[in-house]
Design a binder for these strands. Structure first.
Length: 220
DNA sequence: CCCTGATTCGC
DNA sequence: GCGAATCAGG
C-alpha cells in the first residue's frame, strides 16, 4: 500500500497540460460521437482540443462512419496531392479496402432528419392556410404576394416548434422572425437555428427572401 | 460566411 | 499516435 496517488494523479488532465486521450476522454468522445454530436461540439466539450483533433482521433479509433451496418458510406474522394518529390506512382496493387470488422450491436442510426422540398416533389399536405386568421399585422413579409404554398406550409409547421424567444433572448444564431402582435403578450420570435448568414431559420428564410419570381403580376 | 467530416503528413 | 493544414461538400 505504498502507492500514493495524491489527488488522483492519474487522469488529472486539468487544463494546461498536453491533453492526452485518456480513457475518460476517449469514452466521452465515443459517447458523443455515437450520439451524433459534431466534432466541434465534442472538442468544445472536452476542451483543450480542436475539432481536428477530435476527427483525427475518431478516425484512428476506426469509428468514423456513424452509419451502421450495410450503409455504404459515400466513398471518400482521396484528392491525392501530388508531391513534387514523388516520382511515378506506385503501381502496387493497393485496393482501398474498407474492412470495418467492427459490428456494433448497440443502437445505431443517426437521429438526423432532413426534409427537403423540391420544386417538383412537394409533399404538401395542408397548405391551404395562406390566409392569416385575424387581423394580424403581417410580419416583414415582402408583400401579400403568393409565397410558395410549400414555404408557407413549412412556416406553419415550424411555428409550432419554434423556441418562442423574447427580444432579449435573440442571438446571432437564432431566427429573428417575429410572430404575433408586438402589442400583445402573444408575441415572440421564432428562435430556431438560423440559416448560415441569414437572420432567419430555413423555413422563414423561405418566406422572407423570395427570389422575386413567382411574382405573378396579376394586376387586376 | 458559417458549418461539416475526410485526408494527408510532419512531428 | 497526434493534430494542423488542407480539402471537399452543405
Amino acid at each position: 500500500m505504498a502507492w500514493r496517488d495524491p489527488e488522483g494523479y492519474l487522469a488529472r488532465e486539468t487544463e494546461g497540460s498536453h491533453m492526452s486521450w485518456t480513457d475518460e476522454r476517449v469514452e466521452t468522445l465515443k459517447k458523443m460521437w455515437g450520439d451524433g454530436q459534431s466534432a466541434s461540439q465534442i472538442a468544445k466539450e472536452l476542451g483543450g482540443v480542436t475539432r481536428n483533433a477530435v476527427i483525427g482521433k475518431v478516425h484512428r479509433l476506426g469509428l468514423s462512419n456513424r452509419a451502421g451496418t450495410g450503409a455504404a458510406a459515400p466513398a471518400a474522394k482521396p484528392a491525392p496531392k501530388e508531391k513534387p518529390a514523388e516520382t511515378a506512382e506506385a503501381p502496387s496493387a493497393k485496393p482501398v479496402s474498407k474492412p470495418a470488422p467492427k459490428a456494433k450491436p448497440s443502437m445505431a442510426v443517426a437521429i438526423k432528419e432532413e426534409l427537403e422540398l423540391d420544386e417538383n416533389g412537394i409533399p404538401i399536405s395542408a397548405a391551404r392556410r395562406a390566409i392569416i386568421p385575424a387581423g394580424q399585422p403581417l410580419p416583414p413579409q415582402p408583400s401579400a404576394n403568393e409565397i410558395s404554398p410549400e414555404a408557407l406550409a413549412k412556416v406553419n409547421e415550424v411555428e409550432k416548434t419554434a423556441k418562442r424567444l423574447t427580444l432579449m433572448e435573440l442571438t446571432e444564431k437564432t431566427c429573428k422572425w417575429p410572430v404575433g402582435d408586438p402589442a400583445t403578450e402573444d408575441f415572440w420570435f421564432c428562435g430556431l437555428p438560423v440559416q448560415q448568414g441569414k437572420p432567419y431559420c430555413e423555413a422563414h428564410v423561405g418566406v422572407a427572401f423570395q427570389p422575386m419570381s413567382a411574382r405573378r403580376d396579376r394586376r387586376r
